[in-house]
């Protein structure tokens, strides 16, 4: 439905259902939309990278250094993430805000003279909040991939002369790659389209394309343009995901096969 909508035109109160590409032209050429799309992509790519980089050591620790009750550990690690999404966003707002917990603490400790303002109502806040929100979804696939690595492979690598760092990059990481790719895609896709987080903690600098889509469907009352924006970003995200998928698959195989 969204796709068909995107080829129509909005005339104040009614829809002109003749086929047109005008919405797409506007979506792809208007500097505002382009800027928002690029910012969305930038933010979500950063979110994805940050999330995966945070998730990997956690998953690694549980998989390799916890020997009993791994499931319980995983559960405990992910418990903070099962609270309501909105609640968590507000929580971050309280923590990161101008008079928030973080600033008060830093002021109280005398580490800063005036509240830090770069942490809320901008892209940084969006990144922190989203990375926190999606961490469990990144931890799980990476954990599963790490669990599936036959430990005798690591012993074999050691036996053949590898120290821990070398065997990590030659064995562990390539074999965990499917999990890392899954985590990347799982985080990337929903964060591009997220509109609650940027609205609440992003300020004007932190607004993303999805907020604009929401505006087009709502206040601006131009559903076809909103639909065109939505479809466009869907294609871009899909393309990037496929790119990541194939690129890492090639690297993971080491060129063989």
């Amino acid at each position: 439905m969204v796709v068909t909508f995107s080829f129509w035109t909005q005339n104040y109160l009614d829809l002109d259902t003749t086929f047109t590409l005008a919405n797409y032209r506007e979506a792809w050429t208007d500097p505002l939309y382009r800027e928002l799309t690029l910012r969305s992509l930038r933010i979500s790519l950063v979110v994805t990278v940050v999330t995966v980089l945070l998730a990997f050591p956690i998953a690694y620790h549980v998989s390799f250094h916890v020997h009993h009750r791994k499931a319980l550990w995983l559960f405990l690690i992910t418990v903070p993430f099962w609270t309501s999404y909105l609640l968590r966003v507000f929580l971050w707002k309280v923590i990161l805000g101008y008079n928030g917990v973080l600033n008060s603490a830093l002021l109280g400790l005398g580490l800063i003279d005036e509240p830090l303002s770069f942490i809320l109502y901008n892209a940084n806040a969006v990144v922190i909040t989203l990375a926190h929100a999606w961490a469990p979804f990144a931890i799980l696939p990476i954990f599963v991939a790490l669990e599936r690595i036959d430990r005798s492979l690591l012993e074999a690598a050691k036996d053949l002369g590898d120290g821990p760092v070398r065997s990590f990059f030659r064995i562990t990481l390539p074999l965990a790659m499917p999990g890392v790719v899954a985590a990347t895609i799982i985080v990337l896709i929903p964060t591009v389209g997220d509109y609650i987080t940027p609205r609440l903690v992003g300020g004007t600098e932190g607004l993303m394309i999805s907020n604009m889509i929401q505006v087009q469907f709502g206040k601006a009352n131009n559903a076809p343009l909103g639909a065109a924006l939505a479809v466009s970003s869907m294609f871009i995200v899909g393309g990037i995901s496929l790119l990541i998928f194939f690129a890492t698959r090639k690297i993971g195989r080491g060129g063989a096969d």
């Binding site: 036959d150 005798s152 492979l153 012993e155 074999a156 690598a157 050691k158 036996d159 053949l160 002369g161 590898d162 120290g163 064995i171 390539p174 074999l175 993971g252 195989r253 080491g254 063989a256 096969d257």
Partner: peptide
Amino acid sequence: AANHRPTNMVFQSYAIFPHLSVAD
């Protein structure tokens, strides 16, 4: 440690690296 000993092991499971070619 094992990586500094003049011994090499043939594992029961063979522990062949699945992501590498035979030569690698």
